[in-house]
Amino acid sequence: MSELVLILIGTVLVNNFVLAKFLGLCPLLGASQRIETALGMSLATCFVLTLAAVFSYLIDTYLLQPLELGYLRILSFILVIAAAVQFSEFMLRRTQPVLHQALGVYLPLITTNCAVLGVALLNSRQSDNLVQALAYGLGAGLGFGLVMLLFAGLRERLEQADVPAPFQGAAIALATAGLMSMAFLGFAGLSRG
């Protein structure tokens, strides 16, 4: 149990996928203009991440490794991720049409979110059992959501700020992300190693 908590805290804060591993930066910059969209995006990504982590772990352990088909890992993981994204896409379209419209192209683009494939691939290397794989996926999703919401909040505040002309737009967003990443470095002290 304590091991699961460690995995969760580790992936959310210490080895945060966005700010420590720099995976999944495109939705971080693309869908963080407003807190509501950022929240929807984080929930969708978290859902996809957890689902993809579990299913890719199952496929890897019970199908690819026994058959010695390790070279098919990326192909089959992308298949699983695409299916999970498709599933969450039509779930959202039918239950939250407004949010679906607000997320627009970034929802199907979760498929190419490197964090999702990253979690699936890292899982096959580090996780010993299904529960760990699940915790790893969930932690990565929660970490992504946390950073997304913090970043969207910062950007909403920045809208009001008097940003110098050369820094406006993407430049200030990237500078903000860099500063957040440095702040998250402080969590590195939490880990044992």
């Binding site: 199908l63 088909l69 299916a83």
Partner: peptide, 12 residues
């Protein structure tokens, strides 16, 4: 390999 990818696709 072909069987695995094919059946995965079909199941999904």
């Amino acid at each position: 390999a072909v069987l695995v990818v094919g059946s995965l696709t079909a199941i999904i």
